[in-house]
Design a protein around this nucleic acid. Structure first.
Lengths: 240, 240
DNA sequence: AATGGTCCAGTGGTCGGGCCACCCAACCAC
DNA sequence: GTGGTTGGGTGGCCCGACCACTGGACCATT
């Protein structure tokens, strides 16, 4: 049984997460300069009135985001976030700065349009019968929304492509889809289009037709990129 | 003064890092199944004969890698690493499994060949005079090795493209370059080729010549992809 | 002057033990 | 069934302490 759609999964909050957010804002916002030394863990703990271990948890996360460098016996230093390679940081950016959100989404869609067709091509060449079966099951499954189906279809294609980078990038896109997918799927016409796409790409993979797979994916990516871009522009005009 | 080249930067080890590695191997290696509940923090601490806070640090990192899900009041559960979107995981994979290393490098080079040209195109359209100046400085700077120059040149191009995703992906590639760049640059002919490339792409960006920028990058990417692929194949044949 | 050794205050890493917030399953009352 | 209660077990956080490591000051040697 699917839960009512108006219930979004809410996130548990941790105290360390709040601290993480504060420091993250300081770094991204430029209040903490690159190379600058942060206050010591003991100082931060005292200033924030929390325990040192809580501060350490927050700093550990920031280290994972490649925003700080922790040097044993020395201190914690701010790194250049523009040199980070952590995709999670992108998500944090969009949630922080409303203005940058659209820019990120555009960048994201462009990248997808660029590598999607190649991924489809590789999938058509490397797919196994297992992949086909998974695709069939997803497409048939009536309990899933079109958005959910779309995510799963792309996931199978990424798996079939045998390119781990493509798979990983797609996993990242899917996170975005959960948050912003409505921008595309709220239009029933777009939803219909996706259902059609699922059937077509399935046939192309089944027939190992690389050229066709590439073309189908290219069309879908370009279309959705334009659609969302237009959607954002309209929202932007209305907003101000 | 540049340090002697035979000195590679060595990594400080943390106890929590070791624990992280053990659990990571268990998850990637399949010994811990998806959805499985890990032993409690207290149990792990007792079994490994370390403090619970050390175990928590390790689990925190695994959470950042999206390999486990920590549920307050419940336990820690194994997630499907094929659904992770953390690029750091890819690096961990290559360092763990010698066999998968080549596969990852191939995937990486393919992705780069796919999006590199578009990145160059965007850079040629959006570059500012500041970008050009940075490029000039990097190309001229005689104290840098060709590898270091190449990394910086690409970084400036990524910055100029204004696509945050391209920038981030390139940052990731650069990490690989530090570890595996020798596969390409140990051949002096390839190094010469790169120097030439730097000059050409600079001219294309200067003239805002999108078509040319795209073409130049495409040629370089394809060439290096083939070169490294051939290099890996040869090494593979010799190795067994 | 330059080099290398020693020491020391400060910092992050680990330890141990404790309490709190939360989850879950079992049980109970209706 | 349904909803409320209870209790054991889990992760989150706290406290205080010690260990491992760094950087700088100081000193002895060359």
């Amino acid at each position: 049984m699917a839960p009512p759609s108006f219930l979004r999964p809410l996130t548990r909050s941790r105290l360390s997460g709040e601290i993480e957010g504060i420091l993250l804002e300081g770094i991204i916002g430029g209040k903490l300069r690159v190379g600058e030394k942060l206050p010591t863990e003991r100082e931060l703990a005292a200033d924030l009135d929390v325990n040192r271990s809580t501060v350490r948890a927050a700093l550990g996360k920031l280290e994972s985001l490649e925003l700080v460098e922790i040097r044993h016996g020395d201190g914690v230093y701010v790194k250049d976030f523009r040199r980070s390679s952590n995709l999670e940081l992108i998500l944090a950016l969009t949630r922080m700065d409303e203005h940058q959100r659209d820019s990120v989404i555009s960048s994201l869609l462009r990248l997808r349009t660029i590598f999607g067709p190649d991924m489809a091509f590789l999938a058509s060449q490397n797919r196994t019968d297992d992949h086909l079966r998974s695709l069939r099951e997803v497409i048939r499954e009536s309990r899933l929304s079109v958005l959910e189906k779309d995510i799963l279809v792309h996931h199978v294609i990424a798996l079939a492509s045998t390119n781990v980078l493509y798979l990983l990038l797609l996993n990242f896109f899917n996170k975005f889809m959960f948050e912003y997918g409505y921008l595309y799927f709220e239009d029933p016409e777009n939803a219909r289009r996706s259902v059609l796409f699922h059937r077509e790409i399935y046939q192309a993979l089944k027939g190992k037709n690389g050229r066709k797979a590439r073309k189908i994916m290219e069309d879908v990516m370009k279309f959705s990129e334009d659609a969302v871009a237009g959607r954002l522009k309209k929202q932007d005009h209305a907003g101000r």
